[in-house]
Design a protein around this nucleic acid. Structure first.
Lengths: 222, 222, 222, 222
DNA sequence: TATGAATGAGAATTCATTCAT
DNA sequence: GATGAATGAATTCTCATTCAT
């Protein structure tokens, strides 16, 4: 059950909507804490303060809820990206803003990363089962990024010939791992990566990396 | 406790090491496919062609085996890193080699990434339970990296004042996400990131990023 | 939650009370035969002709059922004691009636003694977990006994200054051991204590002991 | 493995003796804490700091050890009773001494009571399996008691015609329940029966009961 | 005798799911 | 739509016991 649909339904908020939403929220929390295999239907409904039967009524089964959770998080991200407006900023500033947005979004939505990790464990098999809907959610960020690179090249701020996909992966990588693996990395480096200082330091560092990489002065790239 | 090749021998090998290894290997495979919660003891022992009881005899319980799996993978990585010899290469070449090593290691040991993701799901609680042992495994790569940055700064190839931790995280991030999330990313970008071409392209890209970032010419950094 | 007669009805009685009762009854039987540790959930549900899962649904776990069993037996005893009416009998006759009641109750409810023995094995740890409920079951017998001793003292039938607690323990002891340990005692004395004659002889004996002890004529006591 | 046999063996304390004894001790402790069904072979050998295999070597199986434990405790009690010498005391004093001995023995050997309770749970089926040996252990106390009652009758201190069995059961009952059921009884009476004061009070009380009961003055009895 | 390793059977408990109302 | 009850199939783990050395 994707979010969009819900908003296009009857305005009259039937109880079902409430229930459906409560279970979805609880499911996301549970899946992000325990993975798909470790999640239990019972804990989900308890968290949602709903009856076990309701989950089956609204989502068919555990997998149905899991897929709905994934879809919901994708959708939510898409909506957030769609609200981004970088046009008023200079290309370098816009690029920094994009990095900061990505960083902040991951930080504030760790369930998204958890579910993505879980989904990769399963080689995205659940995603495939719903792909039309999720595919339909073409990334606004990719479009934004493409436009921005073009604008920067024209303005002379950025080098030309840079692959948008690569820049997308670059930014994602730099934001993702730090957030997603902060527990094992903190252990590995014997220092708390979750402290405000550590986070601020990293954000500045990666902004610089991206901007330097794209800046027109010198160096070849792909 | 080395794992490596599990040779098919007699049915009831009264050899604890042999059994222990077979179960460990099977456990790593199972945990990396299903996560901790989704893994089942039964599948593990079936894969190891051992008795269910043996798992409990040798590892105490499921969690014990999981922790042993993590420790084993950490240890294995450490040994691989320790074998790296970058001293004969020029700083830029050595840095490229380090990126390629990391990339290759992640690609060839996806179970490590899977287990790390799983462990982060659980906020590294299992790691904490064994931390002394894992903490003892100080990263050879961090030392290598520190030395290399110093050497590069002295030779004039690299800028000075770069944080080794940051460079470590930079390289890790660029290698990790692509491998770990190749399924959802491929779906997201609507192209197969797992193809040889795509991989080769990415590796070259990130090598360049790292080298450019460290090169002495111009730009500030931290 | 009353147990009593378990009528055989339809296979799947969607009646929680019915099921709950059947399992409780079977649990009492099982625990009194095998103790807590030796009892098995499987035998209990088989005896109750219910699904294994139902036990967990209704009682949480094995311990929950055990505690419920203890509570039920305490409650049942309390109700039986409450129905006792000794007011119409002379103090000595009333005292004899009390002894006979205790004796008969233990004889007819050996599960109570078994569970009490089991509970003492565990130093009453389960009882503590539910104590408020069981504590609430203040003993009607203690009150009866206190009243009776007072009445007897006033009427001149009984000596004064006798501790009700002591008399309670006296009567309990004399009835309890014979019933509870009849198997080892029969072996020890090389004669069957369970025969009607042997039992009748003992009952008369202990009645006399108690009455003599309380009778006003002579002797000091506490 | 009964104790007697051990003492009649070679003086050379072979390791087996040590092991056997350690396991027996551990078994008694375990059975008295968990009953027969709840006891585990693993805990027993761990407590005995011996190998699991040793238990099977020395006692055949769990039941063998349980029976040996029972036999050992019976034997031990018998030896203690045999050491009793009441001949120098006047009949009433001797009777009081017998009560005090019984009381003290039960208090100091609670494992005996626990195993007896357990054995009654199983309707003494294990005892039957070894009965010849245990039957052979005729109770010295019964003989002592018979002699004492006779002596008292002759001296005019005690009434005649009292059944030794009954007096034995009387004394046993009064000592047994208080010790065996002190946990549930304390809960029931809402006061700690295990305090020195409470115990002293009870001991005085039951001594008096027994002596009064047997004293020649008045009253009929059996 | 001792011991590390192995094992089939079973035990408690949990799971996802379905029924009946 | 909601809910109390039911259930078969796992799932983790334990147990007593045996093997091989």
């Amino acid at each position: 059950m994707a979010v969009e649909e819900e908003t296009e339904r009857k305005r009259v908020p039937r109880d079902g909507d409430q229930t459906s939403r409560a279970i979805l929220k609880a499911g996301i929390a549970e899946f992000s804490r325990h993975g798909y295999g470790g999640a239990t239907v019972e804990r989900i409904v308890r968290r949602a303060k709903r009856n076990e039967r309701s989950l089956y009524y609204h989502f068919g089964n555990k997998e149905g809820l899991y897929i709905a959770s994934l879809e919901y998080l994708y959708q939510k991200q898409m909506l957030a990206e769609r609200a981004l407006d970088l046009d008023k900023l200079s290309p370098p500033e816009a690029m920094r803003a994009l990095v900061r947005f990505t960083w902040a979004y991951y930080r504030e939505n760790p369930e998204l990363l958890s579910l993505l990790n879980t989904e990769n464990l399963y080689k995205a098999e659940h995603l495939k089962k719903s792909s039309d809907r999720v595919k339909a959610i073409a990334s606004p960020k990719m479009r934004l990024l493409g436009d921005l690179l073009e604008r920067g090249a024209k303005s002379g701020d950025f080098r030309g010939g840079v692959s948008a996909d690569n820049v997308f992966l670059l930014i994602s990588s730099l934001c993702y791992l730090y957030v997603s693996n902060r527990y094992t990395l903190s252990n590995y480096l014997s220092r708390n990566l979750d402290s405000p200082d550590a986070r601020e330091n990293w954000l500045e560092y990666i902004e610089q990396i991206v901007v330097d990489h794209l800046s027109a002065r010198g160096k070849s790239a792909r």
